[in-house]
Design a protein around this nucleic acid. Structure first.
Length: 197
DNA sequence: GCAAGGATATCG
DNA sequence: GATATCCTTGCA
């Protein structure tokens, strides 16, 4: 079953100077794809349990990527919920009895479908992505996961900006740079809410 | 409000 | 080789 969704929230991480970026230590084994050609996937693990999807954005040699923080599901929503369920169960091995399975499934079933991929960890989970997908070219039709231009979006989009989430460790001015971009009014936005700008 | 969880970068 | 930290999430 085909899964598709509209990107509604991203964050930019730009250059080795950006003290919030994985590239701030220079080129390493983990972030090397950020230094490569644009359009490639960079998937990393955060907090030991969540994968996050990024898209490399700048020409080769300049490390930069866009973190996909939230998408609004269009097709394959039940597949996404099923993926969440299996990932959640895999994460808790020991305590994954039938009761917890039913409870998690119930929570996922009652959640509004627009919020199934509201958050960077949930974006990757919904599409079954992990670090093994790093390096995939997101711009070609043959790729199992790709980004396309949406059809018939005639109206101009209203984009809200704000500081990036979870980068309190970074020095100023990078900690406060308004490099989080949100489609205003989307029901799929991750928490915390963006200030109105 | 906070624990879970494993890789990563840095420092001995 | 040890350890502090992390571009988060779900539950108490």
């Amino acid at each position: 079953v085909r899964r598709s969704a509209r990107i509604v929230e991203v964050e930019a991480y730009v250059g080795e100077d950006d003290q919030a970026s994985h590239a701030r230590f220079g080129r390493t084994a983990r972030n090397s794809v950020m230094f490569g050609p644009p359009g490639r996937a960079y998937v990393y693990l955060v907090y030991g349990m969540h994968d996050c999807l990024n898209v490399v954005t700048e020409p080769e040699g300049r490390p930069a990527a866009l973190l996909i923080r939230a998408v609004e599901p269009e097709e394959g929503i039940e597949v996404m919920r099923a993926a969440h369920l299996e990932r959640e169960l895999a994460r808790r091995r020991m305590s994954a009895d039938d009761g917890t399975r039913a409870r998690i499934a119930a929570r996922l079933a009652t959640e509004p479908s627009a919020r199934v991929a509201a958050g960077p960890g949930r974006v990757a989970s919904a599409f079954g992505l992990d670090r093994s997908h790093t390096g995939l070219d997101l711009t070609v039709a043959e790729s199992p996961i790709r980004i396309e231009l949406s059809e018939g979006s005639s109206a101009p989009l209203e984009i809200v900006t704000g500081p990036r989430v979870g980068v309190g460790y970074a020095a100023e001015p990078w900690r406060s740079m308004p490099w989080r971009f949100v489609l205003h009014g989307s029901p799929a936005i991750s928490t915390p809410a963006t200030p109105r700008t």
